[in-house]
C-alpha cells in the first residue's frame, strides 16, 4: 500500500506556518528478510517536495533511514490563511503520491 493515504495539517502561527504531513509508506531498507529468508527489496521515499502556491519551498532527498509511515514537519516563514500547500513524494520504485491543504 505504497500509495495509501496521506494526511496534512497546515496551521498559521505568528509570522510562520507549521506544516505537518503524515504519509503511508513501507520504507523498506533492503536489509530485512521475509519469512522465506529472501531479502525484501529496497523501497523508500527518495524525494519529498513542498510547494506553496505552486512555488517549491522544500526539496528534500531522504533515505532508508527514515521510519515506516513517516511524519514530517516544516516551519515556513510567513504564509497567509488560504495559501495552497502541496506535498508530494517520489520513491525509488517510481511510485508517487501527493496531497494538498489550505493554510488554516
Amino acid at each position: 500500500m505504497a500509495a495509501g493515504p496521506m494526511k496534512m495539517r497546515a496551521l498559521l502561527g505568528q509570522g510562520y506556518t507549521d506544516i505537518r504531513v503524515l504519509m503511508n509508506h513501507p520504507m523498506e531498507t533492503g536489509q530485512r528478510k521475509d519469512p522465506d529468508g529472501k531479502l525484501v527489496p529496497m523501497h523508500f521515499i527518495q524525494n519529498l517536495t513542498v510547494k506553496v502556491n505552486g512555488r517549491t519551498v522544500v526539496d528534500a532527498q531522504i533515505s532508508q533511514a527514515v521510519s515506516r509511515n513517516p511524519v514530517f514537519s516544516f516551519r515556513l516563514k510567513g504564509g497567509a490563511k488560504g495559501d495552497k500547500i502541496e506535498v508530494s513524494w517520489l520513491d525509488n520504485q517510481g511510485e508517487s503520491n501527493s496531497t494538498e491543504a489550505a493554510v488554516a
Partner: peptide, 12 residues
C-alpha cells in the same frame, strides 16, 4: 500523538 500513523488507519 500529533503525528500518529493511527490517523492513516482511520482514513483507510
Amino acid at each position: 500523538a500529533e503525528g500518529s500513523p493511527a490517523e492513516l488507519f482511520e482514513v483507510e
